[in-house]
């Protein structure tokens, strides 16, 4: 699903955000991307989402070579990704329903189908009944779950999450992580970037540890 081959990303300042990173994430895997802030976690996710392009090395995601992808292909490529952001990135002048519906609207689903899928996704994250709320009226944890519902509503092949528990208390954080595990259990490939080592310490999942832009360790517990 994700294949990095000797990937380096050098900023114009000369600083290497990622340095010679190679790894493969297979279909259906769940992996955590950890490391101190500034270690390159967000940069790696940006490469996967075709937000940044690598300076050298090759990035292949979902069969698409992102070094060569045409600008016009990027939207279609991203429709196969679900992205969860640390700061939710919800649209504040749209209702919860409309926020979650956005990926389906973009993909060209019709109204009834959109409604059905949005309710299913909200049900999954435990927010059914809050469709007509606006994001600001929800708690941080609820907003994050809306963000997750939006990321999974179109059943992406790959789910990316950048510090999804960053602003949450431990209890909520565990709940969110459980959600990711559940999605993974039904087949979605999941890559979660987090600096919350404690949260994942007891979990037996693959861990990619970044240190100053290098892949320091690739462990299974």
């Amino acid at each position: 699903m994700i294949q990095f081959s000797n990937v380096t990303l050098r900023f114009p300042t000369g600083h290497d955000a990622l340095n010679d990173v190679s790894f493969t994430l297979n279909k259906g895997e769940l992996a955590f991307l950890t490391g101190h802030s500034g270690a390159g976690k967000s940069t790696l996710l940006k490469l996967v989402a075709a937000i940044e392009r690598s300076t050298t090395g090759q990035v292949v995601v979902n069969g698409e070579n992102l070094n060569r992808i045409r600008r016009s292909r990027v939207p279609a490529f991203r429709r196969n990704l679900g992205i969860v952001f640390q700061d939710h990135n919800l649209l504040h002048d749209r209702s919860v329903f409309d926020n979650v519906a956005l990926p389906l609207v973009i993909e060209g689903f019709r109204g009834e189908e959109i409604a059905r899928r949005v309710r299913a996704a909200l049900d999954k994250v435990g927010l059914l009944g809050k469709e007509s709320f606006f994001p600001v009226t929800l708690s941080t944890g609820e907003q994050q779950r809306v963000g997750i519902a939006r990321a999974v509503v179109n059943r992406p092949a790959l789910l990316l999450a950048d510090e999804p528990t960053g602003n949450l208390d431990p209890e909520l954080a565990r709940e969110i992580m459980r959600l990711f595990e559940e999605f993974n259990q039904v087949g979605t490939t999941v890559l979660v970037a987090t600096h919350d080592i404690e949260l994942i310490a007891r979990k037996r999942h693959r861990r990619l540890i970044l240190k100053q832009g290098r892949l320091d360790a690739d462990t299974n517990h």
Partner: peptide, 9 residues
């Protein structure tokens, strides 16, 4: 996959 995948859907 997912629970979204009810027969109805």
């Amino acid at each position: 996959p997912l629970d979204l995948n009810t027969p109805e859907i």
